[in-house]
Structure formats: structure tokens, C-alpha cells
Design a protein around this nucleic acid. Structure first.
Lengths: 226, 226
DNA sequence: AGACGATCCGGACCGAAGTCCGTTTAAGTG
DNA sequence: CACTTAAACGGACTTCGGTCCGGATCGTCT
């Protein structure tokens, strides 16, 4: 089960953040349960496929992850890959699942400032920073795992992030359309945008981080200037 | 040249906005010049291809726009389609070109509040509303024309919108990272997001519009609460 | 153990995007 | 007008994502 350590290839060396999350804390989300009610052979093949996919990424980058290549590398039929993961996006998402669950656990039940205990505004700040750096770490994979535009917001992981963000916002700016505000804030952390800014515009992560903090400040200001 | 009138099919009947843009004003951007230095046959085929694509959309929706189908409908080889438009996205973008140029002309040189003459904050508000409704009008096409994530922000049209937005922001909030702020604001007008909100969450356009205005207000507030 | 039904497997098959290259043609040039 | 050449043409070909279904397997029930 080493496929959890997949990271993007060709990473420019940007300085590490102040470690926004620590040890996984509770919940013990590791070991990728997949779907529980899975026949023995199915579960075995699932694991082999994920492992094969991770190997392919390590060797040839995300572009090398062809459904057929994965199937072959796992010594399994092509149909099996699709039955298990639905489509290429599903497979790639499954590779990100570990990290997603860890992040989720961290802001649901981890230590402050990400987890409960800190004031909402601080949690909001920490949330953005955490998402930002996690995305940067796995940029290539996150990018490739992006589903077609119509499904981008329907995915449960995205939904969980948004729900959390909305919850925080409601505590900070009870007036105001927190649902839409959450969408906007999340959009500013979009993998495609981060890719564009860091790789094509060559902005340092620090600037993105500062922009997030500034954005949060602006958006949560409740007093009126006039 | 009737391919400019393409709109998304299956439009839910939301009320029209307050007509944010009027007549095209100056620049005369119509009649789709394409690339100027084009051999006669090439120019002819380009026009036929666009017309064929528009017809296919009208008849079978955006999904019916297959490169081969377009080629066949225009009575042209498949290679020709790719040579002219690069890829499917390029073809779809070309279909949106008219409308994009008109919008651009409107906020570059049209009447206020979209064009110059109105105070920047008002122009900013009008800009978002205009983009919002234009996107909603052409939702299906805009969605299908979305390039893969890595190129989403590199396209000249997106760049023009962003540049304009940045310029306005610099006038309103000279402190602050206007480049990144522009990215965030534009992200909140993303076609995929609008699709999700209006079609999947069934939010009315009025709410999106209100959210835009609220967002602009929050983001441009310059005084500090503390 | 034996049998049965649900689940899973594999790879042939399909459709569509994108590439390639030999052939054709528009449009200057003498 | 004959000639040249850069540009354009077309359609066969490749690749890859996704589907389908006959056959193999697992797990269970008796």
C-alpha cells in the first residue's frame, strides 16, 4: 500500500509551509478501505490497480497513466479498471483519496488552528493555506484528476471542502450568501489556477498564501465604510 | 455568416437582465475576420466549417459537434478542420468569438456603466453582471469550449477579461494584489460554476447577480474594522 | 460436498480526437 | 501564359477512453 505517497513530478523547489497539519490525529483514515462490500478478487485487483497506477506515475508521469497501461501493469483486463473506478478521473481521484481523507480529518477533528478549538476566522485562514499547499504538492495529479467541467463541483470531496468552508463562513459572516461565498473562496484555490500562477506566471507560493489571507480579510469584513 | 447567433440549447427561462450592453458601438468587430492572411480556399472553408458547426449545434446540441461530423457537413476533409482550428476547443471558441469581441468592445469603448465614463466601481459591477448573463446565455457552448485545465487561463479572451478587471481593480484598491484579486473575481464567474449553480443547484440568476455585487462590495472595502 | 446465483473478469469492439503524408491548388514571378 | 512553391487539402491511420457480453469465480445455502 505505498500508493499513498504519490506526488506530482517535476516539482519546482518552493519552500515548505509551516506544516499546517501534523500527525493524522484520530479517525485512522489510512489503508484505503475502498468500498467495503467487495469480493475478495475484486479487492485484490483494486489494490493491484492502484499500485500499478502509482508506479506508472512515478515512472512516466501522469500522462503515462493510460487505462490500458494500468490494466496491463496490474495484469488485469481493461474492463476491470473501468468497472472498479468508473473512468480515468475516478482512478486518479482514488489515488488522491488518502490525502483528501487526511485533510478532511484534520479540519474536522484535528488540532487547531485547522481543527475545532480555534476561532472560525483563524480556522478559515488555516484551511486555505492547508488546501493551497496540499494542492501544490500534488499539482500534476490534481490537475489530471480534474473531472469534466460539468462534474467539477459534484464530487463528494469537493462537496466536503465546500461544506466545511460554508460552515466556517456562517459563523463569521452570518449575513451574506455563505454558500456562494464558499464557492468563490474555493475557486481561488482551484488546482488549475494554482498551476497557472505558479508554473506559468512563476509566482511564489508565498504570494498565493498572502493573497488568500488578504482575500479572507476582505471578504469577512463586516463593517460598512459609508 | 449566421453562426454568431448560436446559443445554448435547453435554456431554463430566467428573466432577462437590464440589458447591460446596447448596440456594438465602435470598432465594428463583426464579420469574423479570422486570421487575415488566409488563402481564398482556406477562408472559404473556414466559413463553411463555422456554419456547419453552428448548424450541427442547432440540430443536435453541442454534443453533436464531432470533428468528423463538422468536416462532413462542410464537405471538407477532417484534416482541414484541425489545421484551421487546432482542436475541438479551438473550433468551439471560434464560434464564441463574435460575442466575445462584442463584450470586449463594450467594456473597452462602449457606453457607461460598462464602458469608460462611469466610476471604476460601477464599471466593475456592470462588468460582472454582463459576463454573468452572457455566460448564462451560451452556457452549453461555453462549457464545451472550456479547454483542458492547463490552458484555461492562457487563452487570449480570458486574458483580455482579466486585464480589464485588473485595470479596474487598480483604480479601486491600489493597495492589494490586483492580479490575484482579478483571478478570484473571474473565477466566481466561471462557466462551470454558473452551470453548477443554475442547473444543478437551481439557483436563480438574480441570486448570482446579487452575490457578485456583494462580493465586489466586500472585496473593494478598504477601511479596516479594527 | 455440491449446486446456484450474484459478482466479477477479460478483451474484442466502438467512437472520436488528433496525426501524417502524398497530392492538389492558389497566387505570385518572369 | 508557363512555372514554382508555399499553403492547403483529404482521408487513412493511430491512440485512447469507454462499452459490452460470454464465460469464469466467489461466496453462500442446503
Amino acid at each position: 500500500m505505498l500508493y499513498a505517497v504519490v506526488m506530482s513530478s517535476a516539482l519546482p523547489p518552493f519552500p515548505k509551509p509551516q506544516e499546517p497539519f501534523e500527525t493524522p490525529s484520530l479517525l485512522e483514515v489510512g489503508t484505503a478501505p475502498g468500498e467495503p462490500g467487495l469480493r475478495a478478487d475484486a479487492a485484490r485487483n483494486r489494490a493491484r490497480l492502484l499500485e500499478a497506477a502509482a508506479r506508472l506515475i512515478a515512472e512516466h508521469g501522469v500522462a503515462g497513466v493510460t487505462m490500458e497501461a494500468v490494466a496491463a501493469a496490474a495484469d488485469v483486463g481493461k474492463g476491470t479498471v473501468f468497472r472498479r473506478f468508473g473512468d480515468r478521473t475516478g482512478l486518479l481521484m482514488a489515488l488522491l483519496d488518502h490525502s483528501a481523507r487526511r485533510l478532511q480529518a484534520d479540519f474536522m477533528g484535528g488540532p487547531p488552528p485547522l481543527g475545532p478549538g480555534a476561532p472560525p476566522l483563524e480556522r478559515l485562514r488555516a484551511f486555505g493555506v492547508a488546501v493551497l499547499y496540499r494542492t501544490a504538492e500534488q499539482l500534476d495529479l490534481q490537475l489530471a484528476a480534474q473531472p469534466e467541467p460539468t462534474r467539477r463541483f459534484s464530487h463528494p470531496v469537493a462537496g466536503a471542502l465546500r461544506a466545511h468552508l460554508t460552515m466556517l463562513l456562517r459563523q463569521i459572516v452570518p449575513d451574506g450568501d455563505c454558500d456562494l461565498l464558499a464557492h468563490t473562496l474555493l475557486a481561488s484555490l482551484d488546482p488549475a489556477l494554482i498551476h497557472h500562477l505558479t508554473r506559468q506566471c512563476e509566482m511564489p507560493m508565498e504570494r498565493l498564501e498572502a493573497a488568500w489571507l488578504d482575500l479572507v480579510t476582505r471578504v469577512t469584513r463586516t463593517d460598512r465604510p459609508d
